[in-house]
Design a protein around this nucleic acid. Structure first.
Lengths: 213, 213
DNA sequence: CCATTATTGTGCGAGACGGTACGAAAATCA
DNA sequence: TGATTTTCGTACCGTCTCGCACAATAATGG
């Protein structure tokens, strides 16, 4: 949970920094903060908890990332970056619609299932369900996140039509949003503690249903 | 937000109580607590907030419902009761599968859209996304809630097959869970602030898709 | 009219919380 | 070595938090 004090490698790109070296790697700390935020949510996660999880004391935490809200937003961006990194391969792969949807939903399930103390679910859904959604900036991030997923699935179905795998009579928008809904299902049920196999079976069945002509 | 001090009618069924009369109606207070919990979540809602929302001071709140956790659980039961009350009519109605699914999803959307300061979403999804999910009892309640909705949709599709509206070759379980997923979509997107018409259009399209032979 | 019962509401106390000031520590630079 | 720069880490502030003690209040019972 806590970073090692030595061998941080914080000064990888830039030349030797002037003062006392940092005892942490900022990107590692963000990852640990993200883990904790995902497990316990925004309000229930204290700065002391974050301090313990990152191995940084509160002032360092504040100095490096700003206040709790700023750290949360940085964690959110980290989450999104991790997510999209995994999605790129699926976009580029030369596979049919069933395979593509399956990979997307499996990727989501993988992410939702991660967590040191049980599955943590989807950070975006966590955020929308928290009081943090009252914050306009966070609200905008969340909506953007949902839209990106919708767009990804729209692209999937359009590509499938272009490849002749589905007729162009289907309602691409509706199918894409139903696929998004299956991600919400994965998020919610994984966090509720339902067994992975059960959720996976549902997703597989949904893919089949969504790929019907 | 705050209950009127007079004309409570707390002593409706039981005979005259002995001591000083209550300045609140317990069921009204639970409803107000539920509203607040739905808006701000478990951790971010303080007893002071609940006190202000119900018009009861903290000691009365504590004496009447126990601590915050107990009040949350009571609020959850209230939410479920309200929900199921609306669902009964839909179960009993002599309507086809499209109409039945539409009514269920519209009922869900109605609930998710309620809230004094914008849509509050689904209390069950809020709970699963909060740190309260670490509590075994609350966890069990949530899973039970999800299962009930699944079962309701399974019943819908089975009934549709029995009425000859759908072939018995469809995967009832998968379709039911996809319908549940559309409820999660309603919950998540309403709280994210997406316009009702947009969500409604998605639900309508999904019903059509789910009722395809 | 007084005792009894039940609730109200002020107000307290110990602790957690977010955030920050300030001196100690550890590096580089001259 | 000594000055400078940057970070670390203790210690602290004001506020909020939950939960409860205790007296005032308002009803009923005799």
């Amino acid at each position: 949970m806590v970073q090692k004090k030595d061998l941080v490698g914080a000064d990888k790109a830039e030349g030797k920094r002037r003062g006392r070296p940092r005892a942490y790697a900022p990107d590692v700390a963000i990852g640990q903060a993200l883990s904790l935020f995902r497990r316990t949510g925004y309000a229930a996660t204290s700065l002391d908890d974050l301090s313990a999880a990152t191995g940084m004391n509160r002032p360092s935490l504040y100095g490096a990332f700003g206040d709790k809200r700023a750290l949360y937003i940085k964690s959110y961006h980290r989450y999104r970056d991790d997510y999209t990194a995994g999605a790129v391969d699926i976009f580029n792969a030369d596979i049919d619609i069933r395979e593509r949807l399956t990979r997307f939903l499996t990727l989501a399930l993988d992410i939702h299932m991660t967590g040191e103390a049980g599955p943590s679910g989807c950070f975006t859904v966590m955020t929308v369900a928290s009081d943090a959604i009252a914050d306009p900036e966070i609200r905008a991030l969340v909506r953007e996140g949902f839209k990106d997923i919708d767009d990804a699935f729209v692209w999937c179905f359009r590509t499938a039509i272009a490849r002749g795998e589905l007729p162009d009579t289907i309602d691409v928008t509706v199918r894409a949003q139903m696929a998004s809904a299956m991600i919400y299902l994965s998020a919610v049920r994984s966090r509720a503690g339902m067994p992975r196999a059960e959720i996976e079976a549902t997703l597989v069945g949904a893919v089949e249903q969504l790929c019907q002509a």
